[in-house]
Every structure is written in C-alpha cells, then in structure tokens.
C-alpha cells in the first residue's frame, strides 16, 4: 500500500453529492446570468456556465455511478459543441453590433409586430 493510498484511506473522500451541489450552483448561476444580463455576450457567458454545470454532472456520474466512461465521452462532446455554439453566437452578436451599434439584447426588437 503506497503512501498516497494510505492518505486516501485516512481522509474522507468527496462524495457524489458534493459535485452535484457545485454543479447545481453553476447551473443556477448560468440561468440567472442568462436571465438578467442585457449584454449579448453576458448571456453567452451564462450559457457557458450552464453547460459547464451539466458537464460536471456527467463526469461526476461517470466516476461515482454505473454510467462509466460514457459520461466522460458525453462531456467531451459538450465541450466541443460549446465551442461551436460560442463561435456562432459571437458571429451573430458581432453582426448585431455592426447593424445597430449596440449589444443590448433588449434593443433587438425589430421583429416585434
């Protein structure tokens, strides 16, 4: 038994619920961020936080439940898709800024009847 193993045996390990709590807070912070920010890029940051919370859940379930390695695979897909989503959203935001000279999402109301 190596020293590190002994250390691991002595110290209470973090449980699944710890990670679930952290992930829940990240998720809720993201939701609130999406709801309250009026800057388009701020909204995008909220989306990133939400995706990150979900990712943490996937990896935690991969570690502590029978989900196995599939959780890590899914989280890698999420990371890649988040990159794609950020690229598109930024392109839209830049276009919006070019056309309206503002990035306030409340001003994007031209399609309103």
């Amino acid at each position: 038994m190596s020293t590190t193993d002994q250390v691991a045996a002595n110290v209470p390990a973090a449980e699944l619920n710890t990670y679930l709590f952290i992930a829940a807070v990240l998720f809720v912070c993201g939701i609130v961020c999406m709801a309250t920010k009026r800057n388009a890029i701020g909204v995008l940051m909220g989306v990133e936080l939400v995706l990150n919370g979900a990712n943490l859940n996937f990896v935690a379930f991969a570690r502590f439940t029978r989900l196995g390695l599939d959780g890590q695979v899914v989280s890698l897909f999420v990371i890649v898709l988040a990159a794609a989503e950020a690229a598109i959203a930024l392109a839209i935001a830049l276009n919006f800024y070019n056309n309206h000279l503002t990035i306030d999402v409340d001003r994007a109301d031209e399609l309103k009847g």
Binding site: I41, L44, M45, E48, A82, A83, A86, A87, L90, A93, L94
Partner: peptide, 8 residues
C-alpha cells in the same frame, strides 16, 4: 472558447 469570447 473564452479567448473567442473576450475577442467578442
């Protein structure tokens, strides 16, 4: 992704 975001 975040470097992209900061560029934005």
């Amino acid at each position: 992704t975040l470097v992209l975001l900061i560029f934005g």
